[in-house]
Each structure stands twice: as structure tokens, then as C-alpha cells.
Design a protein around this nucleic acid. Structure first.
Lengths: 190, 190
DNA sequence: GCACAAGCGGAGAGTGCATCCGATTTGCGT
DNA sequence: ACGCAAATCGGATGCACTCTCCGCTTGTGC
């Protein structure tokens, strides 16, 4: 039987996998979004074959590298969905999600792409959309959002705003300014 | 003296240049945004060297290829800036610009990038921003837009919305829905 | 210890970018 | 019409990155 979790890996394999992930996160943190596979292999001190064995595609590596941030976002979304005031919860979630993406080019890339390669992240994504869906439903009832906006619209629009912020100086004032445009844009006309 | 305009080119050179541009536009129209230089050379029936001589970088080729669309956008912006109702002019311009970008991946890429490589497009861009600036100033006076939104914010936000639309089915309803979010988002609170 | 499966690593083929320079073509002056 | 210099052509070349494949090494269970 093939190993299905990290724990089933041989000790050296687990070590190599961890090193590759570590290097990938370092590159992402340094703003390198391309993640050249050969560079990663070299920096991690492993062969290229090893990188490809653990992560068959760059997308798979990327998704594994940003798993942590993704989980934080999901937790925030679930908390927001349980907020007494859905309008406030939505605003809090959007402000959080946008800042999270701005601080993590990898996570932003994963959220931007229409689907996830690995099952683990696919599930996170589905859970996230479900939580946002619940939040939106309550926000609609409370009249805090335009009724035609769905969970995936929120995802795509946030990613768009993130890219708009990134295209400039990305200072605090701009983040707030652009986030406000999104927040006001999805609020119903009064 | 070196040729400074297309007319100064030798007959064969002008022919090759036109062919390369034609092929580039075809690829862009087919949704190919990468524009591989060797592919372009092959399709245009010229050597790679010829492509690079006329267009030293991919960006330069891209900008030359989308010049026409850019000029249309500028014309629309200047017309909008002269509109009696600046609010209506702004809405018209944004709807036009977003649809234009959705129909032309090349133009969208050029508008998204922070600056232009060739002088010709740099000037178009400067003129465009100037026209939008005039439009915004009038819109501010008329209370049709949040005062903190500038011309470059409009550019970046539109590009963000375009990318958000592109991330999905891009059907008519979605284009309107997302464009409305932007329009409402930049309107002042009432 | 030993056997053997799991894992390793890098050679190599493929693709694309960008440069350089010898071969070719063109336009001009006569 | 013709010859020449300048302008232009085109692909060979070197470099970077991707991804596969397979012989060798190493960890693990007995």
C-alpha cells in the first residue's frame, strides 16, 4: 500500500519533503512567485527528481506551501459566519482575507486559480466557499449585501482587489481605500 | 540618419514588421497572451532576429500590437471628460474600458503593467491618465465620486475587476454585476 | 546483519528566450 | 541598367527552466 499521509513516509523522505516545503515558503516570502523547481531542489540540497516525486506539479507544491495560511483564512471565515452581525462579519473577513493575501503571494495565487490540484486544498477551498456561502445568506437576510453576490463572486472580487493593490505602493492607506471600494460595492444601494 | 517612423523603413522591412504585428494580433485574439517570439517568427515567415530587431522586447511588441485599442480607449476617455454629466461619463468610460479589456487580453496586460516600454504607448498612457484625471475632477465637483479616488486608482481597480471577471464564465450578467460593484464602490456614501 | 522495497539524484531531451554575425537584399546615385 | 554600401535577414548559439526516466543508495522490518 502506498503512503497516503506524511507519516507513512520513510524518515529521510519526510525530511526531504519538509526541506523542500521550507525552501518554497522562503522563496514565496521573498516575493518569488515563480518557484523554479531546479532552484528549489538546489536550495533544499536534494535532486530535482525528489522535488517532483513529492510534488508532481508546481501547483501541488504551491498549495502545500500555503496550506497553513489557507487554514487560517478558513477559520476566520467560519468565525465570521457565526458572527452575530453578518454584515460586520463579512467586513472583518474581507479585510482579513485581503491583508492575508497581500502578505502571502502564494496564497493569493492559489485563491486566484479556479480550482485546486491536491485533494487536501480542494477540500479547504470547498469548506471556505461553504462558510462564505452561509455568511452571505445571513448577510442577505440582514440586508447587508446585494442579493446577487455569491460566495465565488466574493472570492474573485477579493483577488481582483488584491491585484489592484499590488499594482501600486501597497501602503496602508491604499489597502483601506481599495478595500472600502469593494465593501461599498457589494453593499446594497440605499 | 536612422528611420524614426514606419515610413522610413525599407520596403521589405516594413512588410516584415507588418506581418509580425499581424501574427501577434492573431495570437492575442486567440487568447494567447504569452506571445512566444519564436512562434511569432515562424508564423510570420521571418527569422527570430527580425522579430527582435523590430521589437526589442516582448513588451514592445505587445504595446505595438494593442496600440489601436489603446487609442480607442483614449478617445472614449476624452469624450467622457467632455461629457456634460461627469458621473454619466465616468460610468460610460468604465463600462467601455472593461469590455474593451475583456475582448483584448493584450490591451488588458498593457494597462495592468505599471508603465510602458515604448515612447508611443507611454504617451498614450499619460494622455489617458490626464483625461481620466480631468473627468474625475469634474466628477468630484459634482459629488459623483469619492474624493480620495485618483486616476491611477481607476486604472488599477478596473484591471482588478477585469481579472475578476476573467476568472469565471465572463458572461454578460457577470460583467454587469462586477462592473456595478466597481461603480457603486467608487461612488460616495449617501 | 540481510534483503528488498522505497527513495534518491542527475543525465538528457524538449521548449523558449535573446544575442550575434555572416549572408542577402534593397535603394540610390550614376 | 548597374554596382555598391547600407540596411535587413535568419538561424546558429548559449543559457535557463521543465519534466521524465532509470540505475544506484538507503532505511526498515525481519
Amino acid at each position: 500500500m502506498r503512503p497516503t499521509t506524511v507519516d507513512d513516509l520513510r524518515a529521510d523522505a519526510a525530511r526531504n519533503r519538509a526541506r523542500v516545503l521550507e525552501v518554497a515558503r522562503e522563496l514565496l516570502a521573498a516575493g518569488e512567485a515563480t518557484l523554479p523547481m531546479n532552484t528549489i531542489a538546489r536550495l533544499a540540497g536534494v535532486g530535482i527528481g525528489t522535488v517532483y516525486r513529492h510534488f508532481p506539479t508546481r501547483q501541488a507544491l504551491l498549495e502545500s506551501a500555503v496550506m497553513g495560511g489557507f487554514e487560517q483564512l478558513l477559520a476566520e471565515a467560519q468565525s465570521a459566519a457565526a458572527d452575530d452581525d453578518p454584515g460586520a462579519g463579512l467586513e472583518r473577513l474581507l479585510r482579513y482575507g485581503i491583508r492575508l493575501q497581500l502578505g502571502d503571494v502564494g496564497l493569493a495565487a492559489v485563491l486566484r486559480s479556479p480550482e485546486c490540484a491536491c485533494a487536501r486544498t480542494s477540500r479547504l477551498r470547498a469548506d471556505l466557499l461553504k462558510a462564505v456561502g452561509r455568511l452571505l445568506e445571513r448577510a442577505r437576510e440582514a440586508g447587508a449585501i446585494r442579493p446577487e453576490i455569491g460566495a465565488d463572486d466574493v472570492r474573485r472580487l477579493s483577488c481582483g482587489i488584491v491585484q489592484a493593490v499590488r499594482a501600486g505602493s501597497s501602503d496602508e492607506a491604499e489597502i483601506d481605500r481599495y478595500t472600502n471600494v469593494l465593501l461599498c460595492g457589494i453593499r446594497p444601494d440605499r
